[in-house]
Amino acid sequence: MSDTRPLLETRALSVGRGGVGLLEGVDLRIMPGSALVLRGPNGSGKTSLLRTLAGLQPPRDGTLEAEPDDIVLAGHLDGVKPTLSVAENLRFWAEIFGTSGIEQALRTFDLDRLRDRMAASLSAGQKRRLGLARLIVAGRKLWLLDEPTVSLDQEATGLFASAVRAHLDQGGAAIIATHIDLGLAPIEHMDVSRYRAAPPAPDDFDEAFA
């Protein structure tokens, strides 16, 4: 039964940034096992949409139905503490999310060799891998990923793609803002510029200031 329920559903969702509308009328339905790739030029509202879905900012309009405990977000920044080791960084998130074991996450992103290195000495790509490994540690069903492959090399991108694939196979789901083809099979694409918010009528000087 639970497999047929969508993990996330929006109806006529409007999203903005700094009081200005970016997207409107977004209808999404994310089923377990599916992945949605968001496309669109810079500044079109991909990041704001993901932050809204994650519950960090309130929608300007419309409805958003999702269980907050299903969602984990990976944004532009990795939240990696440079003075903690790789394993310490991951263990912290494991405790916060109440899960056990960081071994699988370390293995998936090939961080085993680096586990006792201070995060300060990691390269940008290694840091990114550490940030993505947190997704596995969190143990949540719906991954919201904002440009996850930035500064990853080809091999690491492959690791990431297979991690996403394994996650989908286990009944998870993902919404990914990316321009790279990850070679995921059951995938939908959505160009967010389709939902670009229309500029409000010019004489609309009332309660709403934006």
Binding site: G18, G19, V20, P199, P200, F205, F209, A210
Partner: peptide
Amino acid sequence: ARRMRVLLARERMK
């Protein structure tokens, strides 16, 4: 002033 900032922001959006 608030209204003006909103209009400017909208202008930048176009």
